Amino acid sequence: MATDLTSALNAYRAAAGQAAQAAGGAQPADETAGQKFTELVQGALETTNTSLVQAEQLTASAAVGDAELVDVVTAVAAAEVQLETVIAVRDEVIRAYNDILKMPI
């Protein structure tokens, strides 16, 4: 999933640069800003993955009686919120990318 999102972000950045150049010879967006955004998204994905793994481990621990149910519910809820946030960001990036593809050249 992380690779697909990174590819989409890179394609979005390239399309935005091409659209800007075609519109009036403007220079493409700063390359380092695009890299920082990609790193930000990758960090969010890694944090979400860690949260999901932790929730899964707590669930397994609770199944054998080693963890409190309150801790499991809290971890699962936090992981769910993070995952929904990542999905929402992904959907917006894809929507923006599709909007760029629809722009006349």
Rank of each mutant, 00 (worst) to 15 (best):
A2M: 09
D4R: 13
T6D: 06
A11W: 02
A11M: 07
Y12C: 13
A15T: 09
A16Y: 01
Q18I: 04
A19V: 02
A19R: 14
A19F: 05
A20R: 11
Q21F: 08
A23N: 03
G25R: 05
Q27T: 13
Q27C: 06
D30W: 02
E31S: 11
A33C: 08
A33L: 12
G34E: 00
G34W: 00
Q35T: 10
Q35P: 05
K36V: 11
F37W: 09
T38C: 11
L40N: 11
V41Y: 01
V41H: 02
Q42L: 12
Q42M: 10
L45E: 15
E46C: 07
E46N: 14
T47K: 09
T48P: 06
N49Q: 13
N49E: 15
T50L: 08
S51A: 15
S51D: 04
A55P: 02
E56T: 09
T59K: 12
A60V: 03
S61P: 04
G65N: 04
D66S: 09
A67R: 10
T74E: 02
T74C: 02
A78P: 00
E80C: 07
E80D: 14
E80H: 11
L83N: 10
V86H: 01
I87K: 15
I87D: 08
A88H: 02
D91H: 07
I94K: 15
Y97D: 08
Y97N: 12
Y97I: 01
I100L: 10
M103C: 07
P104S: 09
P104N: 06
